[in-house]
């Protein structure tokens, strides 16, 4: 088995554990490169079928290409798509810095989805290498009803034995891509020929390295127009992946505050 085979096999194992132990299960689809890989892995794990609903937390602020991609592949792959409209920004915690407040709308949308206890498991395509607090995540992360992440008191997780039971009304965040890196995602996308949103490729010397809402995400300087070129670029870059995600670095702990209160 090569490196991608190893990563893929473990992710499939995690997806199948989630489907066996954390039902009703749903998946968050941001329509970016990572959650597209999770969708693809789900189709591998379940032999062509995605046996759970796929949820988009919509702020209405995504780029047009994102919506177009969503509609095309939701139809083509026969997905059970649920779109949740996130609450407006003026309902968010006013003590958060402005960009962070805007990002918090997604946590609020997710909390609304989970409020009535419909779902026990939520699949999220975050990775340890993209951000330092995500590096401390568990594969199965138990959350209270409000989604809060108790990072001081995470359960033990070893030998691929995950926390699969939760108290009443709590849910599990399941992270099948936690052990992948950004380059792994691109290599796998290339090998499997997974459709890619054109926003990731350079247009006029700029491309999106990480897709977020248009008001809080900036493209980077890049001439990479193919996956090969993206991989070459990533092999030498020392710029962090989420440098274009403006809410991450507004203050020392702005992203940590987002995550502890339920952000993905």
């Amino acid at each position: 088995m090569n490196r991608l085979d190893i990563l893929e096999s473990r992710s499939i194992y995690i997806l199948r554990e989630a489907y066996a132990c954390a039902r009703p299960l749903a998946m968050l689809w941001s329509i970016g490169k990572d959650s597209n890989v999770v969708l693809w892995l789900a189709r591998k794990a379940f032999f062509g079928k995605v046996p759970f609903p796929v949820v988009q937390l919509d702020t209405g602020m995504e780029l047009d290409e994102v919506y177009a991609f969503r509609d095309q592949y939701a139809a083509e792959w026969g997905l059970n798509l649920i779109v949740i409209n996130c609450p407006p920004e003026n309902e968010m915690d006013p003590s958060l810095p402005p960009m962070t407040r805007s990002a918090a709308r997604k946590s609020a949308g997710l909390a609304n989805l989970l409020r009535d206890g419909t779902y026990k498991g939520i699949l999220v395509g975050i990775r340890r290498d993209e951000e330092a607090t995500r590096a401390k995540e568990r594969v199965f992360s138990p959350r209270a009803t409000d989604g809060a992440w108790k990072f001081r008191d995470q359960p033990a997780e070893f030998w691929d034995q995950f926390t699969t039971d939760t108290p009443e009304n709590a849910h599990l965040r399941v992270h099948p891509l936690l052990h992948w890196t950004e380059i792994d995602v691109w290599r796998y996308t290339q090998r499997e020929n997974i459709p890619v949103n054109q926003l990731y490729f350079s247009q006029g010397g700029k491309r999106y390295r990480s897709l977020g809402e248009k008001n809080i995400t900036a493209p980077i300087e890049s001439n990479a127009g193919t996956i090969d070129e993206i991989i070459k670029e990533l092999e030498i870059t020392t710029t962090p992946e989420r440098a274009g995600r403006l809410m991450d670095n507004e203050s020392e702990d702005s992203f940590e505050r987002l995550r502890t209160s339920g952000y993905m």
């Binding site: 290498d129 330092a132 607090t133 590096a135 401390k136 990072f151 001081r152 940590e256």
Partner: peptide, 21 residues
């Protein structure tokens, strides 16, 4: 670099495991 949580930096202690490539 590794102690990414504010509580870890404030207390000068690693609370949870972290990974870096």
């Amino acid at each position: 670099l590794m102690d990414s949580l504010k509580a870890e930096r404030d207390q000068g202690i690693t609370i949870d495991t972290s990974q870096i490539w």
